[in-house]
């Protein structure tokens, strides 16, 4: 992994289009600003990971799904 030190107000470029700026450092949290083309989705990693896991689990579903289903009450 590439590791670089940045101060608040300093930025990192991903190619020509994606800019990450360190906005504020406060205790153990860092506020970052992300400027990316709108075609690129931006996710918090833990949410991305959870959705990826659900998608993978859904993709393991058997071809035979139940037909006569109860209505949720």
């Amino acid at each position: 992994m590439l590791i670089i030190t940045r101060r608040p107000g300093e930025k990192v470029m991903f190619g020509d289009d994606v800019v990450i700026e360190v906005i504020e450092v406060s205790g153990s949290s860092v506020r970052i600003g992300i400027d990316a083309p709108k075609s690129i989705p931006v996710y918090r990693e833990e949410l991305w990971r959870a959705v990826k896991a659900e998608n993978e689990a859904a993709a393991k579903s058997d071809a035979k799904l139940p037909k006569n289903l109860p209505l949720k009450t």
């Binding site: 996710y43 949410l47 959870a50 959705v51 659900e54 998608n55 139940p66 037909k67 006569n68 289903l69 109860p70 949720k72 009450t73």
Partner: peptide
């Protein structure tokens, strides 16, 4: 598009048939 739902009550794993234990498949 698969999107992130910002609504507050939107779990990643919401049971479809909670409480309906006996069902004929």
């Amino acid at each position: 598009y698969q999107v992130i739902n910002q609504a507050p009550d939107a779990p990643v794993r919401a049971p479809l048939f909670a409480g309906s234990a006996e069902v004929a498949a």
